[in-house]
Design a protein around this nucleic acid. Structure first.
Length: 575
RNA sequence: GACUCCGUAGCUCAGUUGGAUAGAGCAGCCGCCUUCUAAGCGGCAGGUCGAAGGUUCGAGCCCUUCCGGAGUCGCCA
């Protein structure tokens, strides 16, 4: 077991048990100050309070056991009952060697059912904007995080291609091209025209009841299978999705399935009468709803709307039907957990759908999870707009970051593909800005920050990786070989300790659906490496030291590049 | 009105069952490139953790009230 934190916690629990103390809640945390050692344990104080005993005495009893363990260089009781632990250098070196030899770098492999990840959530005719960035980057990162744990993943973009918006759009394109026959209009609409017409149509429908009635009628016709409506719809959908796939490729979001709300139409038609017949759904005020309120609710949870009084399905209906489809489809039937990476504002919606799914017996074995995230705002706290007042397109944002990165690339080196490197660095900056903050907090969109390449940024971590790679390449050229990790200099020890936290970081990130745990970890390793880099010459060191440092470099490279991979960030050859 | 999230350094953010002197990065100031890439390293400065009470040996974290911001609240998706 390469898990450093797990090993220390294990020893702590044994020592508490040996002192006849409960082990529940006993764990280590990183020492708050370097002079306290590597880890501290605060459990004695909590236990002392519960047992009404002096925490210092409890800590002293535990310390006595731990001191007999040669793995610890020092065990001290401090203050009201802190246990300060410092590992022996040989133990750290040994663990680092184990980690270097481990194909998973010590990351615990989970034997769990595949996970279905639903993210992206783009809509027909709406260009991807900064709001989609979070879903795409967080979703892709979670996908890789699970894969790093040995868990298979199935990703579905869940395209918004159904409902009233489509009626609005079809009506608008037919109005714009009165000379073309219904059913032949959609195929002639390019993406630019579609994206221009849609917001106009939505505004017109809002302002004009007649336009709205027209849109509703077309929506109903589409859902009823009208051939012309279907033909125009299909063309619009295809054009829009093809365009969006370019953006998915651009940000590196990989999808197994490009299913949409429309794909569940047959199930929607079946599920409504079925749920009514089973008494799970009921008619109310002309609509069909499922009551999902629970006595323990601290807020009112309205019933889930299954069918509107005009007979149309809703977003909730398609989401519920999609759950049924996923359980039945060969591609997703084995998935034990469905994870939705969607804006936190839809929290209530998912509460309703998930409860309805459980009532209907549709929920997968390991449950339904909504991984929400905060909204993207401008510096004024309001939804982010460009200087021109429009939405900031994802493509343009990344273009800006890449252009900024391009300015810094050394174009004089013919071995470097400047454009490709600028794309890698610019994208890293954008992704890092998003993934390094907690997903639930409000998100202030700041272009300056997104395209800055210094300090706590993606390019900084990439740069650390690149420099390690450069050392390794020079070593190969010089015929120098790595041996085994051994630790002498404090910067070497600190770097090894940082690397050894990888398994704990992955656990924390997966448990909380929190890629920022990985970003924090990667930044700490990069910082440790940068310090090591300035303080410990590798190639200029003596033979034995050089070989040991090369081994440590190899580990740091493996760990850092694995962490960056989990964030969806590329490791360039040079910078 | 009810509920949810948020308020931490000039700015953007961390802060792990309640623990030691609240941490990073940016911006500012001072140093470091004849030596593995300075997208780097070291240092200085910067805080009544929105406010007031309470619980506790100990509160950024838990409880109460208030202030401020964002969001949601059955027939949009």
């Amino acid at each position: 077991m390469v898990d450093l934190v797990g090993r220390v916690d294990d020893k702590l629990r044994r020592a508490f048990a040996a002192a006849s103390l409960p082990v529940e809640g006993v764990r280590s945390v990183p020492a708050t100050r370097p002079e306290f050692g590597d880890f501290q344990c605060n459990a004695a104080m909590a236990l002392g309070k519960a047992a009404k005993r002096n925490p210092r005495d409890l800590a002293a009893a535990v310390a006595e056991t731990l001191r007999r363990d040669p793995d610890f260089a020092s065990v001290e009781v401090a203050g009201p009952g802190f246990l300060n632990l410092r590992l022996a250098d040989a133990v750290v070196a040994g663990l680092a060697r184990e980690q270097a030899a481990s194909p998973t770098l010590g990351i615990a492999q989970r034997d769990s059912a595949p996970v279905l990840l639903d993210f992206g959530g783009s809509n027909v005719a709406k260009p991807l904007h900064v709001g989609h960035l979070r879903s795409l980057v967080i979703g892709e990162s979670l996908s890789r995080l699970f894969q790093a744990q040995g868990i298979a993943v199935v990703t579905d973009v869940h395209f918004g291609d159904w409902g009233l918006q489509m009626g609005m759009l079809i009506a608008a394109i037919r109005r714009a091209h009165p000379g073309r026959a219904p059913g032949t209009v959609g195929a002639g609409i390019a993406i630019d025209e579609m994206e221009r017409l849609y917001p106009e149509a939505a505004a017109a429908c809002k302002a004009d009841p007649e336009r709205m009635a027209e849109a509703r009628a077309l929506t109903a016709a589409l859902q009823a299978g009208d051939a012309d409506a279907r033909a125009d719809w299909g063309a619009l959908r295809d054009t829009s999705l093809a365009d969006q796939k370019r953006d998915f490729d651009l940000v590196g979001a990989r999808f197994d399935l490009f299913l949409g709300e429309s794909d569940t139409q047959a199930t929607v038609e079946r599920i409504v009468p079925d749920l009514l017949a089973r008494g799970i759904a009921e008619r109310d005020e002309g609509a069909v709803v499922i009551a999902v309120a629970e006595p323990s609710d601290t807020r009112p949870v309205p019933p889930m709307m299954l069918e509107k009084s005009d007979g149309a399905a809703t977003y909730a209906t398609t989401d519920l039907a999609t759950i049924a489809d996923r359980a039945a489809s060969p591609a997703t039937a084995r998935c034990g957990r469905y994870v939705y990476v969607v804006d936190e504002r839809q929290s209530l919606h998912f509460t309703q759908v998930f409860r309805a799914a459980r009532k209907a017996g549709l929920a997968p074995a390991d449950g339904l999870v909504h991984v929400g995230f905060g909204t993207v705002n401008g510096v004024d706290g309001k939804p982010y707009k460009t200087r021109e007042g429009g939405v900031a397109r994802l493509r343009d944002l990344i273009g800006d970051a890449v252009a900024k990165a391009r300015e810094r690339v050394d174009a004089s080196d013919p071995a470097v593909d400047a454009e490709a490197l600028a794309r890698q660095v610019g994208l890293a900056a954008v992704k890092w800005a998003d993934l390094s903050t907690g997903r639930l907090g409000g998100y202030v969109f700041n272009l300056e920050r997104m395209v800055s390449f210094e300090g706590n940024t993606g390019p900084y971590v990439q740069y650390a990786c690149v420099r390690i790679g450069a050392i390794a390449a020079r070593a190969v050229a010089a015929g120098a070989r790595a041996s085994e990790i051994s630790l002498g200099h404090p910067a070497e020890r600190a770097l090894a300790m940082a690397c050894l936290r990888l398994p704990a970081a992955v656990e924390a990130a997966a448990a909380g659906y929190a890629p920022n745990e990985i970003a924090d970890f990667a930044f700490a390793v990069a910082q440790s490496f940068s310090r090591f880099y300035t303080e410990c010459p590798v190639l200029a060191a003596g033979d034995a030291e050089r070989a040991a440092r090369l081994a440590l470099c190899d580990l740091a490279f493996a760990v850092l590049s694995r962490a960056l991979w989990m964030l969806g960030i590329a490791v360039p050859q040079r910078m």
